[in-house]
Amino acid sequence: MSQSSLRTADPRLVLATRNAHKVVELREILADALHRTGLSLVGVEDFPQVGEVVESGVTFAANALLKARATVQATGLPALADDSGLAVDVLGGSPGVFSARWSGVGGPAKDTTSKDSANNELLLAQLADVPEEHRGAGFVCAAALVTPDGTEIVREGSVRGVLTRAPRGSGGFGYDPLLELPDGRTLAQYSSAQKHAVSHRGAAFRALATDLAQALAPVG
């Protein structure tokens, strides 16, 4: 099967998330690849038939593939998914794949701001007595592309820093206000363009962009 045959008549590429922040972020990161393929990136909110996926994988790559496969199966369209999280050195790499639900799984599914705050507060409390020299941590992201014919590609990216003692910055989401990079700013203090250039998600999806453009190139 040729690469161009992987394209469907529908020009949408589905990002397996209901997080509006991620959809906007990925449209920016993948702008060139989307332009080259003529695809528009949409979230699963546009597809009520896509159910919640149990992220039962024990790695970021496994969870990304679970979400992308389920989205392709439900929509018949090529899908992107990522799984990412914060790995804290003194916690043995946790929260890791449990980052989004570190403070529990209760509460409204769409109330991401409250969940982010709860996760951040719990993590800071757990590390309250940890000295500066042991507050190393990093974000890790696995990005997956799955097409209706069964093609599967995964790329990974990471960024390292140290954890602050209080959130700083109003940009980004999740644990962004807690990870301070070597220049003294948290990811939440970067502009969108600056964050995309250094972030784990930016690195993973930039690596995947070439695969995307090749696999989903328009016919002709």
Score class of each variant (00 low, 15 high):
residue 193 A to W: 14
residue 152 E to Q: 10
residue 210 T to V: 10
residue 166 A to P: 10
residue 166 A to R: 09
residue 115 K to M: 13
residue 109 A to D: 11
residue 37 T to V: 09
residue 15 L to C: 05
residue 131 P to D: 03
residue 195 K to W: 08
residue 158 S to L: 09
residue 199 S to H: 02
residue 200 H to L: 04
residue 58 V to Q: 12
residue 156 E to Y: 06
residue 106 G to K: 11
residue 85 G to L: 11
residue 186 T to E: 10
residue 174 G to R: 03
residue 198 V to Y: 06
residue 203 A to L: 15
residue 160 R to A: 11
residue 65 L to I: 13
residue 106 G to Y: 10
residue 154 V to P: 00
residue 178 L to N: 04
residue 76 G to N: 07
residue 195 K to A: 04
residue 173 F to Y: 07
residue 28 E to H: 14
residue 104 G to C: 12
residue 75 T to R: 00
residue 3 Q to V: 14
residue 43 G to V: 00
residue 182 P to A: 06
residue 21 H to G: 01
residue 41 L to N: 07
residue 206 R to H: 05
residue 127 L to A: 11
residue 136 G to K: 14
residue 136 G to N: 15
residue 206 R to Q: 08
residue 105 V to K: 13
residue 77 L to T: 02
residue 69 R to A: 05
residue 48 P to K: 01
residue 40 S to F: 13
residue 215 A to I: 15
residue 15 L to V: 02
residue 104 G to K: 15
residue 179 L to R: 07
residue 168 R to F: 03
residue 68 A to C: 04
residue 74 A to T: 03
residue 184 G to H: 03
residue 134 H to D: 15
residue 215 A to G: 13
residue 209 A to D: 00
residue 109 A to G: 10
residue 104 G to N: 13
residue 133 E to D: 13
residue 5 S to T: 11
residue 213 A to H: 08
residue 13 L to I: 06
residue 190 Y to P: 11
residue 34 L to S: 03
residue 39 L to P: 01
residue 38 G to Y: 05
residue 62 A to F: 07
residue 114 S to N: 13
residue 20 A to C: 12
residue 162 V to H: 13
residue 7 R to F: 06
residue 177 P to A: 04
residue 76 G to H: 04
residue 191 S to W: 08
residue 160 R to M: 14
residue 144 A to S: 05
residue 217 A to R: 12
residue 25 E to N: 00
residue 190 Y to W: 12
residue 9 A to W: 14
residue 68 A to H: 04
residue 144 A to T: 01
residue 103 S to K: 14
residue 6 L to T: 14
residue 171 G to I: 09
residue 157 G to I: 06
residue 179 L to N: 08
residue 147 T to N: 05
residue 186 T to L: 10
residue 24 V to R: 09
residue 6 L to Q: 14
residue 162 V to C: 10
residue 34 L to I: 04
residue 40 S to I: 10
residue 43 G to L: 06
residue 25 E to L: 00
residue 162 V to W: 13
residue 46 D to L: 09
residue 13 L to N: 05
residue 208 L to A: 07
residue 9 A to T: 15
residue 81 A to K: 07
residue 152 E to K: 08
residue 159 V to Q: 11
residue 53 V to R: 01
residue 77 L to Y: 02
residue 207 A to P: 06
residue 165 R to F: 11
residue 90 V to I: 05
residue 66 L to V: 00
residue 176 D to W: 01
residue 62 A to W: 03
residue 87 A to K: 14
residue 28 E to M: 13
residue 30 L to E: 02
residue 72 V to K: 05
residue 175 Y to W: 05
residue 67 K to N: 01
residue 3 Q to I: 12
residue 72 V to C: 08
residue 31 A to K: 14
residue 102 W to C: 15
residue 163 L to W: 06
residue 166 A to K: 10
residue 9 A to F: 15
residue 95 P to Q: 00
residue 113 T to K: 12
residue 145 L to Y: 02
residue 94 S to D: 11
residue 117 S to C: 14
residue 122 L to G: 15
residue 117 S to A: 14
residue 175 Y to G: 08
residue 50 V to R: 00
